[in-house]
Design a protein around this nucleic acid. Structure first.
Lengths: 210, 210
DNA sequence: AAAAAAGAGTTGCAAGTGCAACAAAAAAAC
DNA sequence: GTTTTTTTGTTGCACTTGCAACTCTTTTTT
């Protein structure tokens, strides 16, 4: 079993008890299938036991925006998105996902289980982290030019990977989605950055020269 | 005393005890003074007892971006921003602010005070709300055109104020900041929307015709 | 009440960006 | 190994946007 952030510090047997108490269901999803649709209005929480999912918004003009990419042990729920959006949770690989009602997470049950405290402490941690990630994305999105968006993104990544030689966590098409810019315009700007000697790059591999 | 979200459901006397335990300081700030600078790297949390503050990022080119506007009873801390930013918390009106270390919020003290549970439950609530707000902002910022940004923003506001006749919560200059677009370009687009009959507007008052 | 500052509203122009439509390379499927 | 699909890389062009430089109005300060 992978380390599930929400259940960290709780013994396996207690996790099992808790999931029983929550009436949680574990469901299996094939690659590229929908885990939840109209996600903005569900009260469910999903915990990724195995696999990988993406939270996607389909825009009226047919384009799509990646809201978030989640992996093993991650959790998603109403807090992952704005209520006014048309959202889908898609399994990008074969996945096992534990589903239950969000209310269980925040309302302590009557029995006052000791491990419930731990669960809620974990939630504070998880939500804080998500907030920081969101703030990062907002920092990038508020940059006005494609160049500034790219550089801001590369910088943050470089800090995280602790080196100038970074590897993008997704392909260039998805990067353009994440930065909310046109892919071809982004490629053009990457070319400019290369020609000016600010970066070297080939596909997902980028080396910062500043 | 105003309703402070972080302390909701905790009796006044217990709040006082807790703040003692946290070694919290209440400080007074005049209009347009700095509450915290280099905010990204502090471990402090601020609770607004009276007044109003803004979390501001100053960009290298001199422009500024409003990260968040906060009022009475709101809380701010490391979770309010990305660590890589140069941030300031500015009092926009005369304000009283309670400051203490973030660690107190998430680490239950040894005495296991009963009201600490309530505090942490409140934090989950607060963080969830902030996440939703952030998600909203991301939804808006990921729109590609000024028109779509404006309409997305108006829609969300219209839902919140439950009418087509909305009043902006800040002036047009700050709105442009919030949407991260050029003010004059925004004015031009508002004019277009008016001419096409999609909205009526005068200053902060906007009426949606759709 | 007058002066100063802040905000709203406008416009020309240059630069940046999105879109469409490709070709080439790489990866996945057969 | 060949075919198919996905991803990367490129370019011309039109249009949107940012910038600068204003005027006019409203609000705040003295």
């Amino acid at each position: 079993m992978p380390t599930i952030k929400a259940f960290e510090g709780i013994e396996d047997e207690n996790v099992k008890k808790m999931l029983m108490c929550f009436q949680a269901k574990t469901l299996h999803y094939k690659k590229d299938t929908t885990v939840l649709s109209n996600f903005g209005n569900t009260t469910q929480v999903g915990v990724i036991e195995h696999g990988e999912v993406e939270i996607i918004r389909y825009n009226y003009n047919g384009t799509r925006t990646i809201i978030e990419t989640l992996g093993e042990g991650d959790i998603f729920g109403s807090f992952s998105a704005s209520a006014s959006e048309e959202l889908y949770v898609i399994a990008t690989t074969e996945s096992d996902i534990i589903l239950f009602e969000y209310a269980h997470l925040i309302n302590r049950c009557k029995k006052n289980c000791p491990y419930h405290n731990q669960l809620i402490d974990n939630m504070v941690q998880i939500l804080s982290n998500k907030l920081m990630q969101n703030n990062e994305r907002i920092e990038i999105l508020t940059k006005k030019t494609i160049r500034d968006k790219l550089l801001a993104y590369f910088n943050i990544l470089s800090k995280k990977q602790i080196r100038k030689n970074i590897t993008l966590p997704f392909n260039l098409t998805d990067l353009a989605d994440y930065l909310s810019i046109d892919r071809s315009a982004m490629m053009r700007e990457i070319k400019n950055l290369k020609e000016e000697g600010l970066i070297e790059s080939k596909g997902k591999k980028i080396c910062l020269h500043y």
